[in-house]
């Protein structure tokens, strides 16, 4: 019961943070709230027995992500401009998606139900055999590095790709060739060397 209450409190705090983030126009404050959001969700991950995930979320969401966001802010803008666009279409899209998801949850196994297919098909195999076959205590590591080691290779490649991507984008010359400020006609002059 107490766990449930903690869960609920955390979820409500998450919601409040998210709503605040919609409203905040000060981007620094928003990034800070994003960090808070990550830390809150990390706590929730702990409550849901996912300590590894919590650790990672805290390190990524609370650490790296915040640092990068702040760095990006320093390079871009500190405030969000007033909203000019129509909010109804996005709202409609969001509500439709949400409604579909809510509809879909109705047939989901109950939260924590040990008889759910999730817990009865593949997972028990890992829990039963990992200590013998892999010989390490952390099931998550066993699956991550061995049973699904190829996914983790992929994950490392994703990180590597991000590295390549960011270096490609940010190591090149500061301005695009042929860019001038203000209205201009596109393309042809970019190569003529006039600009």
């Amino acid at each position: 019961m107490i766990m449930t209450l903690i869960d609920l409190a955390l979820i409500l705090a998450l919601l409040a943070t998210a709503v605040m983030m919609i409203r905040l126009r000060n981007l620094f404050a928003m990034v800070m709230l994003a960090g808070v959001f990550s830390l809150l969700s990390a706590s929730l991950f702990v409550a849901l027995d996912a300590v590894d995930v919590a650790f990672t979320e805290a390190a990524v969401g609370g650490g790296i992500s915040t640092v990068l966001m702040l760095g990006a802010l320093a390079l871009t803008a500190r405030h969000e401009a007033p909203i000019r666009r129509n909010q109804l279409v996005p709202l409609g899209v969001t509500i439709a998606t949400g409604a579909a998801l809510l509809y879909g949850t109705a047939d989901l196994p109950l939260f924590g139900d040990p008889a759910a297919p999730v817990h009865t098909h593949v997972a028990p195999y890992y829990l039963a055999t990992a200590p013998k076959e892999i010989g390490i205590d952390n099931f998550v590591t066993a699956i991550l590095a061995s049973y699904r080691g190829f996914d983790t290779l992929g994950e490392t490649m994703v990180v590597f790709t991000a590295g390549v991507a960011v270096l490609f984008l940010l190591r090149s010359a500061r301005r695009s060739r042929g860019e001038v400020s203000g209205p201009r006609d596109d393309a042809p002059d970019a190569r003529s060397g006039k600009v």
Binding site: I143, T152, E155, V158, A162
Partner: peptide, 21 residues
């Protein structure tokens, strides 16, 4: 169940990679 944890670890990494790009 440890499997979702593994999947989400990967997904978090993918998320931060996307954010960086």
């Amino acid at each position: 169940n440890p499997l979702p944890h593994v999947l989400i670890l990967t997904a978090i990494v993918v998320g931060i990679a996307t954010t960086a790009v």
